[in-house]
Simulated scan of single mutants.
Amino acid sequence: MRTDTRLPRILHVLLHLHETDVPITSERIGRMLGMNPSLVRRTMGGLREAGIVGSTKGHGGGWYLEKRLADITLSDVYDALGEPCLFAVGTSDDTPTCLLEQAANTATESALEIARASFLGALDETTVADLVEGSRKPTDESHRCKG
């Protein structure tokens, strides 16, 4: 099963945008993440619409932060990405009139809702600035990315 890695990837990009004084091109972000630049532009477009990032065209153009990291929650980024599906687990509709299937679906939906609420609550309580805390030691050079 394929997983959706856009949230951590875009958080990664936001952290790099924070570390630079110049806009970063879609091509450079694409190299860093191993993504096609057009996919970078589409993905970042949702963040631009949410007011998280801005962009400039032309020579010296690219993506830049519109907000301070402390003003961006992980929930803001998740919402800007279109709230990707959290779980592959779902309910069954093989025999919708069966009371046992209904009970199994109710239990599954309940557990999923608890997990979803916990996940969304954690995103809402965490800012992108919080990710900088403890992300590396002052002498750590391992944060270098290709691109």
Rank of each mutant, 00 (worst) to 15 (best):
P8C: 05
R9Q: 15
V13N: 02
V13H: 02
L15V: 09
L17F: 12
H18K: 10
E19G: 13
T20M: 06
I24P: 05
R28L: 14
R31N: 11
R31Y: 07
M32V: 00
L33Y: 09
G34S: 07
G34D: 11
M35K: 10
P37I: 05
S38N: 08
R42T: 09
R42I: 05
G46F: 11
G46C: 07
G46L: 09
G46E: 04
L47F: 05
E49Y: 02
E49V: 12
A50E: 10
A50R: 14
I52A: 03
I52W: 08
V53S: 03
G54I: 12
S55T: 14
S55G: 10
K57N: 12
H59T: 08
H59Q: 12
G60F: 13
W63L: 05
W63R: 06
Y64D: 03
K67C: 13
L69N: 05
A70R: 15
A70Y: 04
A70C: 07
D71G: 04
I72K: 07
I72Y: 08
L74M: 15
L74G: 14
S75T: 01
S75K: 14
S75R: 15
V77W: 09
Y78P: 06
D79N: 12
L81A: 03
G82Q: 10
G82D: 08
G82Y: 12
F87C: 06
A88Q: 08
A88V: 05
V89C: 01
G90Q: 06
T95I: 02
P96I: 05
P96W: 10
P96H: 03
T97K: 08
C98M: 02
L99E: 11
L99A: 08
Q102L: 05
A103K: 12
A104T: 07
T106H: 11
T108I: 15
L112R: 09
L112H: 02
E113A: 13
E113V: 00
I114W: 03
I114V: 15
I114L: 12
A115H: 06
A115Y: 04
R116S: 09
A117W: 02
S118F: 12
F119S: 00
A122K: 14
